[in-house]
Amino acid sequence: MGNVLIIDRTIPEIVNCAGKVGRLDLIEFCWGLKELGVGLFEINAQALKKLEKLPAGIDFVLRVECGEDINLIRTRNVLGIVTGTHVLKEAKNIERIGKMGLCITVEQRLDNTSDINGLASNTPLYKQASVNCVRLLGLNNFYNSLWLEVLEKVRGETGAKIDICPENRFFCASALAVEGIMDGADAVTLSFMGIGRPYGFAALEEVLAAYMLHGNERVKYNLSLLPKLASQYLILTGANICDSKPVIGRGIFRYESGIHADGIQKNPATYEPFHPALVGQERRLCIGKHSGRKSVSRKLEELGVFCSDKRLELFLEKIREKSISLCRELCDAELMQLLGEVREDACTDC
């Protein structure tokens, strides 16, 4: 398992779905993704137009839908093209690409494992065009992990490198991408938050986190940048990021239930898959319906308030009632107000 090339295809998706996208915002987002660990950015004609002059220091590949798109390449930091067989079938296109010294990635859709046999028929074309890399797109019905034998077969037949780009039609794209990396794919094409048409792609942040946790120890991605990138993504797309979104959701390290609070207090690793700081976050104790005695005591300590055991029991009951009525956790101010009410109740009992 070597160091796989991470290709990002978020930019064309953002440009397509968001109306007004600022050029500088896009470039800043690219720099952030590069710092995260992305090695190559895929753009298309529409994104190229939006970016105008491509920033030096970031490497791109251009999606070529038709021969004319090749003419759009004017800067050295477009290292290659991503295209389909229809473009390669025209000799003049191959000639121009060759003269420009561009690497060719050819995209091959594979929906079922039986589609692998179809690859063989294209091998002569790939060789004639000196294709550098074959991107396996889709893989929607590749549910059995043994599909990875495909990689060796394709590599053997074409002599090209392998890039995998799973779609997320059945919610397994990130799993497929990680398996691809583990089994020796040379590159993997992903998008931030899995954004993409029509089903989305493997989510960049999920795949990098999984690869770091399970892969080669030498592989380091700067995942602490993810909150900043999420903010930039929000500005660019206006899309809401669900607070439970794996790896980047703002709520993934919030904990409330007594069982989890107790475990985390003793040793955070009991209920956390990785340290929150790894992805630039912090854990946060919430108080609500599911809170237990220990977590409420801890919260009161944080707030600098003393509470007797008897009063704590009443307080806990009040918290549960209030939390249910509000259908959410309680904030510090609400807790202090509630504690005040419990004091009065306790005095009445006396």
Partner: peptide, 10 residues
């Protein structure tokens, strides 16, 4: 499901 922080069902 309900154990998710912030969810409270009556």
């Amino acid at each position: 499901g309900e154990q998710k922080a912030g969810i409270a069902l009556g």
